[in-house]
Design a protein around this nucleic acid. Structure first.
Lengths: 209, 209, 209, 209
DNA sequence: GATGAATGAGTATTCATTCAT
DNA sequence: TATGAATGAATACTCATTCAT
């Protein structure tokens, strides 16, 4: 960490331009229907350039997920490592972080889910698969720490912390994906924030002893 | 309704064979990566035959969702219309139905979700779009009735019944999709039932006044 | 051997149409510069159809070589198994067969050489690689038999029969490839037959004791 | 001719580095499958630099052939112009030269053959095409001189000297290419020298009156 | 109805070549 | 000179869909 050359910074910026273009098109049209040519055009590069930064389409998609997981991971750590909060407060702080993630980019979760529902890691470099794996586990472990602390202090119901962490995450992603999907059945949209808030409140009430 | 000729029954059976093959492959590999040829082979038909029963790939996929929604709708009605249960009992009965659906076919939900995240209904017949829309709304309305009753009787917290119905459904699908996706990160699997049970219990505790 | 259905015969005919188109274009423009689309057009099929008969471009090329090797193999066996000929007569009969092969299709050898100079069998099915290997070895073994017999009978110089077979084959392919290549330096062409005849005569004189 | 500035010498050295890299990769993978980037990496230059020394890929390839032809031409002249040798001795001296060429660089011939089988000179500068043409004809003419002398002195069989020169050359290249190609069918390798020696001995015996 | 061979538009990917630095 | 990032035309290959049998 520390000083990066201008070249490196420029390279990273271009990488991000591509990732942003891909995120936009993947969440607009889905992974399969978004073409590399469109993504290139959106990022204002030629198709060939995409392949200087990403091995192939799958790798571009997966790199997107890594970005998101890294962002989530950071937010989770901020909460867990805040010494001034008790477990319940951490749960509420978590809710705020969840909103923050959603506000930062409402499509993040949808993009992430594309990876998770894709059944094959065949075309990805081993390195990338390992990074995704590590980040995923780390995020859940961090989440589980909060529940562990709460259970130990007798504040939360006695359940395995991992299971609670899974449920918290399921609710988060379930709500976002569900509400997001309703757009296409012509429902009013943008209830996501409200529904999410209610859902997490109900969850918090449910896990209290 | 009423008497169907043998021909009609045979036709329906074949339709179902195709739908089952499609369900299997769509949930295994996703809509885009499953090919019509594979589906045909799985159903023991030739590719051309699929087009005698379904206008195109999108329509096959959507018809699948109709099937699932009809199944879910039936289960929901059974619960809601059972006069002998109070709202809380209905919630627990609902949990049992959810398990029933999952046991009947663990892939149902994954397949349904494919529809919901598809971004275009362009290739579907109007009739089919309307049927999906009606079934979706009906299912949620039915679910909302339980919460409405519970709120009116002062058993559940005061929230909009639709919102609670959405959350219930989000949790259900969120858990299944999340746990399902973990398989690919080499986690132990088949925790779905347990996690689902805990999640719904927490939810029920959370919605009680 | 045996009865083939009309379907099978038709399929084989179409396969041959494609092989002929490929042979023509590969020897005209070389493997890399001949496109699948051109080959399809030449064979009066659509590009997709080529892939119903051959897994990929490499496999199409290799199948071409198999054809040639099978033809050569047949001719060689005819000579070797002719009981009425002594070794020297067989060598002259071989010369005739070589002309026959060349007359049957002057491009055969050039096409075959494309395979031999290609460095990777990676994209070929194992089955095809094995077939090529078997045919190649068999052809050489058959050729070696003639020399073995000649050496045993004291007619030919004492050298390893395999080595003589290799040299015979080298001369054959060397002459054809060399004379063929001269066309592109604007030399008069079609000396191949004459040069080949002289070369083999010199060889035969050289191997006699 | 004469004194070259340091600059010029340096330039020539770099040119040679590129040619060597190209020779290696062209004979390993063939012209089409060897990429300019690989060649650049092998030569420890950047891709752009290659274009400072060669107009394009075809020109690089053709320049390679010129190098080889010049080398071969030198060796041939050494033999032909040696006044102390009679025709038969020249033939044997030629055999030694052939080994010398092969030992100097076993890939030379394979690379040369790439040029000869290339179907288009379109992308080459006229100057280069003419140089290749001149060198090729000169080499053969030189070779033919030996046979001419041998025929005139009544030592060799009565055939057109050009034809004998062609056959000599065919045998040389045929053996090398053939033995080289066998590596890929998993045969033991490095028999080339032995086979070549036997082949030329048989040839010499065959051309003697 | 059922077949499955044939189609051909659509797309990911490669790579010779250029050019701003 | 030398670089190497960027280009974009070229092309192998796929797969939903059709239609003659």
């Amino acid at each position: 960490m520390g000083i990066k050359s201008r070249k490196e910074r420029e390279k990273e910026q271009k990488r991000r331009l591509i990732l942003n273009a891909a995120k936009k098109l993947f969440s607009e049209k889905g992974f399969s229907k978004a073409t590399m040519e469109e993504i290139a055009k959106e990022a204002e590069f030629s198709p060939g350039t995409l392949y200087l930064y990403f091995k192939n389409k799958d790798e571009l998609d997966a790199s997107l997920s890594v970005e998101i997981l890294e962002f989530l991971s950071d937010k989770l750590h901020e909460v867990v490592e805040n010494q001034e909060l008790d477990p319940l407060q951490k749960l509420y702080a978590l809710k705020e972080k969840v909103f923050e993630v959603y506000n930062y980019d409402p499509d993040l979760l949808v993009s992430l889910f594309h990876l998770k529902t894709r059944k094959t890691f065949q075309h990805l470099t081993r390195k990338l698969v390992e990074r995704i794996d590590t980040l995923s586990r780390d995020a859940l472990k961090t989440l589980a720490k909060i529940f562990d602390e709460g259970i130990n202090k007798g504040v939360f119901i006695e359940k395995h912390p991992n299971e609670l962490a899974d449920i918290f995450w399921s609710i988060y992603s379930g709500v976002v994906l569900w509400e997001d999907s309703k757009k296409f059945l012509n429902e009013d949209k943008n209830f996501i924030m409200e529904t999410l808030e209610t859902a997490i409140d109900i969850f918090i009430k449910g896990v209290l002893k």
